[in-house]
Design a protein around this nucleic acid. Structure first.
Lengths: 167, 167
DNA sequence: TTGTTAAATAGTAATTATTCCTAAACAGGA
DNA sequence: TCCTGTTTAGGAATAATTACTATTTAACAA
C-alpha cells in the first residue's frame, strides 16, 4: 500500500462514507491499478484478504464510490463496466485485440473547443477521447487481423495515423 | 423508405450477405434512424412488418452487419449496446440525464494529432470524442441534478465549457 | 425453372453482468 | 458503551446477450 490509509479515510469521511476494511481495500486496489479493472477483477484482487467477501460488496462499494465522485466508470465494450480512480483529466487508448486500456495524458487533448452544430441548450460538462487500434503485442500475434467479439468502431477515418495540428 | 432497396442489396452483396426482407428492414431502419437505437428498439421498429420475427434475428443481423463493417456499435453506458449505420467520421454528444445521443459533426475534431506518451508500437486506427452533459430538456426538468444510474464520467475538467483553440 | 446448399430465421434455453432483497455485522457518533 | 443507520454477505432475481437447433429461404448452378 503506497497510498496512506489516512488519506483514504479522509476522502471517505469527506463523502460521508464509512471507512470499512473492505471498502478501503477495494478503493486502494483501484488507486494502485492502471488497468481500469472490472468489478470481478477487483474482487479477485481483494478477495484473498477477505475470504468472506462477496462480489456484491464490490458492486455496492463501486456504486457508492462512483456516486460520491471518488471514482469514474469507464465504458469500453458494452459487456462489462470498468472503473478508474484516476480523476485527473485523461483519455484512453483501447486495444481492439486484447481490450486493454492505457491512459492517454496529453494536455493538448484537454483544450478542445466546443464542437459546432450542437443544440444551444446542451451543457457539456466533460468530454473524453477514445483512441482505438492494436497494441504491439496484438499486432504481432494476430498479424494485424483484429480477433475480438467487440465493436471495432471506426468513427473517424485516420489515414496512416492521426495527423495535422488543429486549426 | 428513402434509401433505395438496390443500394442496400448491393451493399449486402458486396459483403457476401444474403438480402433477406428482415435484414433489409433492420438495416434500413438503422440507416434512417438518428438515435443510435438498441437491438430492442430496432426490434420494436421492425417487428410490425414481421410478426414472426424474433429478437434473436435482430442480434444476429446486427452482429453480421457489424462484422461486415456496415454498422458500428456505440457503447455509451455498459448496460446495452447501441448501433449506428452512419459510417462517416463523427463524434457523440451524450446526455447524462436521458441517455440520448446526438451526432457531433465538426471537421476540426477529425484532425487531432497523435497523442503524446503512448506506446510506440500501438497502431491507432480510429478515435472518437464523447462529449457528456445535460440536454436542455433534462436541465429544465431536473434542475441540473443528474438523475441516472449511469456513470457520469468526468475525465477532463471543462471549466465553463470547452475552450481554447488547440496549440 | 428447378434443385441444391449454405446462410438466415425463429424459438427456446443458457449465460453473464448486474441489481434486488434481507438479515446480520459493524463504524461512528452520542 | 450503546444506538442507529450504513455496510456486508448471501441468495435470488433481472436484463441483455449469446448459444443451440430445427426449419426456412436466398442465391447460385444445372
Amino acid at each position: 500500500m503506497e497510498i496512506p490509509f489516512n488519506d483514504i479515510k479522509q476522502k471517505f469521511q469527506g463523502c460521508g462514507l464509512k471507512t470499512t476494511p473492505q471498502r478501503t481495500a477495494i478503493y486502494d486496489a483501484l488507486l494502485r491499478s492502471t488497468t481500469h479493472p472490472t468489478a470481478e477483477e477487483l474482487f479477485a484482487e481483494v478477495a484473498p484478504q477477505f475470504p468472506m467477501m462477496s462480489l456484491n460488496t464490490v458492486y455496492y462499494t463501486l456504486g457508492a464510490l462512483r456516486t460520491s465522485g471518488l471514482i469514474h466508470e469507464v465504458n469500453i465494450g458494452h459487456t462489462r463496466a470498468r472503473f478508474d480512480a484516476n480523476l485527473s483529466p485523461h483519455h484512453h487508448l483501447i486495444c481492439l485485440g486484447c481490450q486493454s486500456i492505457v491512459d492517454v495524458i496529453d494536455p493538448r487533448l484537454n483544450r478542445l473547443t466546443s464542437p459546432a452544430g450542437i443544440p444551444k441548450d446542451f451543457e457539456i460538462t466533460s468530454y473524453q477521447v477514445a483512441f482505438r487500434g492494436l497494441c504491439g503485442s496484438c499486432r504481432r500475434h494476430t498479424g494485424r487481423s483484429i480477433n475480438h467479439s467487440s465493436p471495432g468502431l471506426h468513427p473517424t477515418t485516420v489515414k496512416g495515423g492521426l495527423h495535422g495540428k488543429s486549426s
